[in-house]
Design a protein around this nucleic acid. Structure first.
Length: 561
RNA sequence: GGCGCGUUGGCGGAGCAGUUACGCAGAGGUCUGCAAAACCUCGUAGAUGGGUGCAACUCCCAUACGUGCCUCCA
């Protein structure tokens, strides 16, 4: 059974073939940590967790990078407006660093509550500034950049495949474009790799812009002779820059860390074609020989972060890149442009995008006040797992619709599942497999259900189908005597559900304590003697302990209430 | 203006060219000391108009409507 995924590159559901037989490299665009994540944000992380679990179940090892965007994500994705972190800092009277730390911790806590597997690399953009500067340097050396008064930009006209991924019609877009705020950009869709801190402003998060990334004032036409670099005709490079970059290549072939880790890990021969740059960028100072004593501070562009982190950790080509559907036209288009321009290789083989969640039929929007967080849901009595089960009700490619009515439906289903899980405490010892062989039909059907769940996920992460399978398998335990439930088979199914869907059914359905068991027995005796009053009192006592009693034709069964 | 997605019963939501899953909710019934649960039955769902097929919810085309991204947002 091969895994199939809907690949945005091909717009088709493709069979998944990783670069390596055993290992899958995966990059997930992570959160921008300036506020609490809302249900719409969590959708993506829940689906990608299912993806990882499915890959693991298929026998792959997974190396996943998830970024924590803690700098550079502007209020507008198009390099305009304020930095979300700096804005959040002012809102709360803290520094951007404090904001980032607080919300990053909250995000990790949320992942734990939702039972999401931790990525192998959960990395902060601010910890990868040198790598990001290296990438800018590399792009500059290859002639893909230009400088404006507010930053270093990627010249999309130099990357001819720019419009391909999102199938953009740039000419048409140009015609209908909004007023362009930055008239120094050569194309409206050029994007900032590195932005300069505006003069007179002090950001919480800013770094020195290495001198060699800056362009000096333009030279005269005569002086520019011979300054072409890599076929770039622009006169934006001067002789000094060319000289410097030549020197750097000498140094850098020894010192670069940019792809070093990835090289040692993957030993992909194609990496040999990649000419690395220096990692010393952050240490470059405006010192001797520089005519410019002013230090220009700056910060990375949002798009740059993802490429730098993905490539420096996983290598220039990764298997899967995931993200929200909104990122196709801008963020991921830009990631592809800068990554592939730098490496000369395909960046990701599979681009997997989750569709958005609507809320009450309309979009999730801070201004509409419908950005429910885990904390909000908790306040209304819904657990993180209720939310997760709700989200799994629809496939990641589909637009979901969040309503409290639907969340309640998921909550009821979750409660039912937990009560089925509790049956394992109520089957008897004689059913622990010793006196029932593995070819027992009940056992087999439960095993079949476990593999049917796996198959459903292999089919483009069809979580609704997986839930249906679980419903049918667990439902088949209904209205049969406890004595005919195959405990081992039930355990295997529950383990499979927890492994594949991460619902933590086993750990959240403990056995009842001895006192409760005693009350149950007492109640049984009372019922045998038709002492209904005592029986009902005992039932109330159990209810106070959140234990619900059902008197079925096959005996008493308890559940959680 | 550009690029997308969708339209299945009260709600959510799959598969499938030929008995319309599954969950939640509703009505009636059986069972039960009572309650709950369970079980049974019911409401007989596929936007519209064409096309291809013996046969279409399922494939193709068009239309309508809804909705998302391109300015908060996964």
């Amino acid at each position: 059974m091969t895994l199939k995924l809907h690949n945005t590159l091909t717009r088709q559901t493709d069979e998944f073939t990783p670069l390596s037989d055993k290992k899958v490299t995966l990059y997930t665009c992570g959160p921008t940590v300036y506020d609490y994540p809302h249900v719409g944000n969590w959708v993506a992380f829940i689906y990608w967790d299912i993806l990882v679990r499915t890959l693991l179940s298929a026998g792959y090892t997974v190396e996943r990078v998830m970024n924590i965007t803690d700098v550079g994500h502007l209020v507008s994705d198009a390099d305009e407006g304020e930095d979300k972190l700096e804005k959040g800092a002012r809102r709360e009277g803290k520094t951007a660093w404090e904001i980032a730390e607080f919300y990053a911790e909250d995000f990790v806590a949320g992942m734990e509550k939702l039972g999401l597997l931790p990525p192998e690399h959960l990395v902060k953009a601010t910890d990868f500034i040198p790598q990001q500067l290296d990438l800018v340097r590399l792009l500059k050396e290859k002639g893909y950049t230009y400088q404006t008064t507010d930053g270093i930009y990627f010249d999309t006209s130099k990357f001819t495949a720019y419009a391909d991924f999102a199938r953009l019609d740039l000419d048409a877009q140009k015609a209908g474009a909004r007023v362009e705020a930055n008239d120094q950009k050569r194309q409206p869709w050029d994007f900032a790799l590195w932005k300069f801190t505006p003069a007179g402003e002090k950001r919480d998060m800013e770094w020195e812009t290495p001198d060699d990334l800056l362009e000096l004032p333009k030279l005269t036409d005569d002086e520019k002779q011979g300054a072409d670099l890599n076929g770039v005709k622009s006169g934006d490079f001067d002789k000094r820059v060319v000289r410097e970059s030549e020197q750097q290549e000498e140094i850098t072939s020894e010192t670069s860390q940019f792809f070093a880790d990835a090289e040692s890990q993957r030993q992909d021969p194609r990496l040999a074609t990649y000419v690395p740059s220096t990692s010393q960028a952050a240490r470059v100072t405006t010192g001797a020989g520089s005519s410019n004593e002013e230090v220009i501070m700056g910060f990375p562009g949002w798009h740059l972060e993802c490429s730098a982190m993905a490539m420096s950790i996983l290598g220039p080509t990764i298997d899967i890149h995931t993200g929200g559907i909104d990122h196709i036209p801008v963020h991921h288009t830009n990631e592809i442009a800068q990554s592939e321009a730098a490496s000369g290789q395909q960046f990701a083989h599979y681009w997997i995008h989750n569709n958005h969640l609507k809320i009450d039929g309309t979009k999730v929007s801070k201004s509409l006040g419908n950005t429910y967080t885990l904390q909000d849901l908790d306040g209304k009595g819904f657990s993180p797992m209720d939310l997760k089960l709700f989200i799994l009700q629809s496939q990641y490619t589909n637009e979901g619709n969040f309503t409290f009515e639907n969340l309640t439906a998921a909550q009821h289903r979750h409660a039912n599942w937990r009560n089925y899980a509790a049956l394992r405490h109520q089957t008897h010892d004689l059913l622990t497999d010793d006196d029932r062989k593995n070819d027992d039909p009940d056992h087999k059907s439960l095993q079949a259900a476990a593999s049917a769940v796996r198959e459903a996920l292999m089919n483009n992460l069809n979580t609704p189908e997986a839930l249906r399978v679980v419903d049918e398998a667990l439902g088949s335990l209904e209205a049969v005597p406890l004595s005919s439930i195959h405990q081992h088979g039930l355990m295997q199914l529950l383990e499979a559900i927890d492994e594949l869907l991460g619902l933590q059914l086993l750990q959240t359905t403990p056995d009842i304590d001895d006192e409760a068991k005693k009350l149950l027995l007492e109640r049984e005796r009372a019922r045998e003697t038709k002492d209904w009053q005592k029986s009902d009192e005992l039932r109330d006592e159990l209810a106070a302990k959140h234990i619900h009693v059902r008197d079925t034709p096959h005996g008493v069964i308890w559940g959680y209430s």
